[in-house]
Amino acid sequence: MPKAVKGVLVECDPSIKAIILKIDQAKHDYIVEDLDDQTLVVKESQLQRLKARLEEELSNTQQMPDDSASD
């Protein structure tokens, strides 16, 4: 019998997905279903927290180009 599960479909680059998997690894409290390289389903209630965590991870590893301060 087919089943329906509520959640948020997240589509992203494989590299971003790898980070999400890493974040989820600690407690397994984000991901509902891992679909493929670029898609997964996460819990709706956790989406905001996941975004914040992702932003945090990225800012640790990436350097944003500077805003030119000239006016």
């Binding site: 087919p2 329906a4 599960v5 997240v10 992203c12 680059d13 971003i16 996460v42 975004k51 992702l54």
Partner: peptide, 17 residues
């Protein structure tokens, strides 16, 4: 730049025979 992922709220259908 800030939106690294596209999120869509909804339902996943699975377990089809």
């Amino acid at each position: 730049e800030g939106d690294r992922m596209k999120a869509t709220v909804g339902f996943l259908f699975k377990d089809f025979n």
